[in-house]
Design a protein around this nucleic acid. Structure first.
Lengths: 148, 148
DNA sequence: GATTAATTGAGAACAAATCTCAATAGGAGT
DNA sequence: ACTCCTATTGAGATTTGTTCTCAATTAATC
């Protein structure tokens, strides 16, 4: 399996774009976080190591990482977009607790057969599935019961 | 089945909130559109009929409609949130064409058994499912073929 | 090393959403 | 119907996330 930097390098080459230091640093930062992140958080992480990358460049680079298949736009939170890296992670379902905001994940595999059937019926070329379930997580169900 | 204004009235009463003219007009506008809409569009629709409602009030009222179960946050488009009303519409899957932006819809029913199982395993109280599939619609697949 | 075009940083600009606060209007009780 | 209390409103200022601008820089190619 090619590493994320190899994938990125190949993508840039294919597009005639340059592999710059800021882009490398943004990529590394994105893969150093094993969780959802937003631009501001990513910017902070980069800042802690070097101060060579501007916020504008982070914003400019994220779409490249998405195009390269390295990062995907993820949950929509209240005020800003969040992302997560993909390579090696199978696509999944997000279970978002509306009380504490916790995010659980589960596999998408069980649903794919039914989805594939639908896509054939609609003659729709399925590329990406984003499935978010909201509700209440176990912990919050417990504390709700206690407080009553 | 209770009408949307009855549902809203009951919700407001339960919460000790007031049923004001602006709120009624916003509700009516939301149910006059049979499609996705964003705040700006809703505001325009209201403006065409009366000029009694301010943009700030539209922003303030949408969360109430969501809490009341009358409206749900829907697709995330590039630049701003969109919503759609729910009452009478079964929950569905959105198939979003990344080329022309068309949105097809299909039923969620086939997927629910598998989802319910997952939710039990995770002990997660499932309240709402939002499933967006992106890819390419039939029309755009055709025009892609032609242009090659 | 020279050339060329892509890329960058810094701050300005923009747009969506939220906040502020004085004026207004539901609606519960009389 | 009238009063009182509190929620609500409008209008514009403010905040926040994102994009744009442009001169200076840098990666890649020869």
């Amino acid at each position: 399996m090619p590493s994320h930097s190899e994938v990125f390098r190949a993508y840039l080459k294919r597009k005639g774009l340059k592999l710059t230091l800021p882009r490398q640093q943004i990529l590394e930062a994105a893969f150093s976080v094993h969780d959802h992140f937003n631009i501001e958080q990513l910017y902070k992480i980069i800042r802690e190591k070097t101060n060579l990358v501007s916020l504008a460049t982070v914003y400019r680079t994220i779409p490249l990482l998405i195009e390269a298949g390295l990062v995907q736009q993820s949950l929509r939170s209240a005020s800003c977009d969040t992302y997560e890296h993909i390579l090696g992670h199978p696509r999944h379902i997000h279970w978002i607790c509306r009380i504490c905001g916790a995010v659980l994940e589960s596999d998408l595999d069980d649903l794919m057969p039914a989805l594939k059937q639908d896509s054939q019926r609609l003659r729709f070329c399925l590329e990406e599935v984003k499935l978010n379930v909201s509700g209440v997580c176990w912990k919050c169900q417990q504390s709700e019961k206690e407080s009553q």
